[in-house]
């Protein structure tokens, strides 16, 4: 524990594509749907290997979600896939009625979430999806942190019965989760052991959280980094246990603060163990065009911001 090596740099969406290809081999009920973004969602290999199980939906996401719901009714395990903005807000009502309320075994797979989408700008930088999805009863919401964890999450989603929202990103990011690290939907992963502050991170903010832990160690503060890959159902036990030990917490996510993971953690702690808290996330504003790194810096989503927040919350104890 406590030492993670960057083995490679890969995009999480590629982890989805690779896992889909793999699981489709053993499970012929798996079907893929895509709304004109096959390359972006890395579904090309799947589509080539299983053309009869790949359904190009064209630019009509509402219909794609409904078709997926109908296929699931008939016993298939559909993976409708598109960008995060088109796979959440644009089709919220379709997801709500035909998938979540109807409890269909549909795996909604979205990519290019968050600011790290970069140059395309705010129209496509979906920062509200986790909030929208976590509010839906029956919905499981997963936001994996690297290529390896995305592969694990995709496989786990296929095994899990019920609607799942899986969120990926566009740029290549550090691959650091060991391949033999266990992954279970709804179970947090304690990445480092610490006593002074708990850092709860999800998605692209997990690697910066690990870097922050190193920098805090140099300052004599031991941080416990917890990776929440499953936003819902939330592993409240792991969160409360850690904060009972450290008595303060920082959350970090590439998402709007309103409705995000931080809000879920605050909800949990308010009920179980109130403690000083800081939240890293986007604060009630849309994004803009720019390079992913520039955007993460401008909007305060870096390891440096996590360190500052940790010091602040540590001194509030």
């Amino acid at each position: 524990m406590n030492t993670y090596k960057v083995r490679d740099h890969k995009d999480t969406r590629s982890g989805y594509g690779a896992a889909l290809l793999e699981i489709a081999k053993d499970n012929d009920q798996i079907v893929g749907l895509c709304a004109d973004l096959t390359g972006s969602l890395k579904m090309g290999d799947f589509a080539k290997a299983y053309p009869e199980r790949f359904f190009q939906s064209g630019i009509s996401e509402a219909n794609m979600m409904g078709v997926a719901a109908g296929m699931a009714t008939a016993g298939k395990i559909p993976f409708p896939s598109t960008f995060a903005n088109f796979g959440s807000g644009r089709v919220y009502d379709q997801i709500r009625q035909s998938i979540a309320y109807s409890n269909k075994n549909v795996k909604i797979c979205v990519s290019h979430a968050g600011l790290t989408l970069g140059e395309d700008g705010a129209t496509h930088q979906m920062l509200e999806d986790l909030g929208m999805m976590k509010m839906l009863p029956n919905m499981t919401v997963i936001n994996p942190c690297d290529y390896t964890q995305t592969m694990q999450a995709t496989k786990a989603a296929a095994e899990h019965y019920g609607p799942v929202y899986l969120r990926f990103g566009r740029p290549k990011m550090p691959v650091f989760i060991p391949e033999d690290m266990p992954f279970k939907i709804g179970e947090a992963i304690k990445l480092t052991q610490g006593n002074d502050v708990t850092i709860i991170a999800t998605g692209h903010l997990v690697w910066p959280a690990i870097q922050a832990e190193q920098r805090l160690k140099e300052k004599g503060i031991s941080a416990e980094v917890i990776n929440i890959h499953t936003i819902k159902p939330l592993d409240t036990k792991a969160i409360v246990e850690s904060v009972k030990k450290t008595h303060c917490v920082v959350t970090a996510e590439e998402h709007m603060l309103n409705g995000g993971l931080g809000e879920s953690v605050a909800h949990t702690l308010a009920k179980n163990y109130p403690a000083p808290m800081e939240m890293i996330g986007v604060d009630d504003t849309f994004g803009e065009s720019g390079k992913p790194d520039e955007l993460m810096e401008k909007y305060g989503l870096t390891d440096k911001n996590i360190v500052e927040a940790a010091l602040k919350v540590f001194h509030r104890k």
């Binding site: 409904g66 296929m71 009625q97 035909s98």
Partner: peptide, 21 residues
């Protein structure tokens, strides 16, 4: 087999079931 009420969604689901068949 599926919730309905918010209009416009049933044809997509029916087509999905038809494809699965």
């Amino acid at each position: 087999r599926i919730a309905s009420g918010s209009l416009g969604q049933g044809m997509s689901a029916a087509l999905g079931h038809a494809l699965a068949k």
